[in-house]
């Protein structure tokens, strides 16, 4: 049900690394004005995806479109509208201070805002004169974020942005993304395995596994639909409950389902009262989707 225009489109994109790893074929449309979280285990292809989006890798098959254009139609114009925080900070060490990087990037990005840069420096407790050499991983991460946001991009690509950040800075990161998205026509693609970031920021969640998408959902569909219920007694065939995922306990029993509304009405029909409901963890949802994927692969 995507009605807005798309900031990013991957069309039948494939990238092969020998026999080792294949990315895709992937179809993905990222709606403008939305935050889409990419969730997957290590090695599922998140960073490959971001590198394809940044034209740091070129697809073997298919096409990447950003704001409707391909990179062959003009890389500079596209990149001027993207803020990218890569998995690992990668600064040219000719730059010695934070201000050197800013001075360089401000020439590149047409919408670079000096005022925003100063505000962000202040918010993250850094200075123009802060030296890059010897900076901790977390502090470098803050530099990455400041630069990506001060460029006032339309599309923000965040690859595990909070790795290395302390809880306080992680909270700031969430606030900054929220602030960024409060402006008209902004889009975020966020690769993360931190549940809090997904629950607080995302509008859509795309699950990635072995280079493929194994499910794309509206976030609230996950929160409302994927639940565990506690019940006093079991229905006749619990595994036939709608969306059944698993059963534990010996009374009261805990049943996990991916179709809470239908499961609840079935239980009601059988006269079984639900004692308690609870949301499933993001990791439990990911694990289930992977299990379903493996089962489907085994059958075919």
């Amino acid at each position: 049900m995507r009605t807005g225009s798309e900031a990013v489109i991957l069309q039948s994109v494939e990238k092969h690394y020998g026999d080792e790893f294949a990315f895709g074929p992937m179809e993905l449309a990222v709606e403008e004005g939305m935050v889409t979280a990419i969730v997957g285990p290590n090695g599922s292809g998140k960073s490959t995806m971001f590198r394809l989006l940044m034209n740091l890798l070129q697809p073997d098959e298919g096409e990447v479109r950003i704001f409707g254009s391909t990179y062959s139609e003009g890389e500079t114009a596209i990149k001027g509208r993207i803020g990218y925080v890569p998995e690992l900070s990668d600064y040219d060490m000719a730059a010695r201070r934070v201000g050197d990087i800013a001075a360089f990037l401000s020439l590149w990005y047409p919408h670079w805002s000096e005022a925003e840069y100063k505000r962000l420096l202040d918010a993250f407790g850094l200075k123009d004169s802060s030296k890059l050499k010897g900076m901790s991983k977390g502090t470098l991460r803050k530099v990455d974020l400041i630069m990506a946001l001060a460029a006032q991009p339309h599309l923000l690509l965040l690859d595990e942005p909070s790795s290395g950040l302390d809880p306080l800075a992680s909270g700031q990161l969430i606030d900054e993304v929220k602030r960024f998205m409060d402006q008209e026509g902004r889009t975020v693609l966020l690769a993360t395995h931190i549940q809090e970031e997904v629950w607080k920021l995302a509008d859509y969640v795309a699950f990635l596994y072995e280079g493929r998408l194994i499910g794309t959902y509206e976030k609230d569909e996950l929160k409302d639909g994927w639940k565990a219920v506690w019940i006093e007694r079991l229905p006749e065939r619990p595994e036939e409950l709608p969306g059944f995922i698993g059963l534990e306990g010996e009374g009261p029993y805990r049943i996990a389902t991916r179709d809470y509304a239908s499961a609840a009405s079935r239980l009601k029909e059988e006269g079984i009262r639900i004692l308690q409901t609870e949301a499933l963890e993001l990791n439990a949802i990911l694990a289930q989707l992977i299990r379903e994927r493996r089962n489907a692969a085994r059958k075919s």
Partner: peptide, 8 residues
């Protein structure tokens, strides 16, 4: 963001 739900 305050309610941790989607803008949709």
């Amino acid at each position: 963001a305050d309610l941790a739900c989607s803008v949709i």
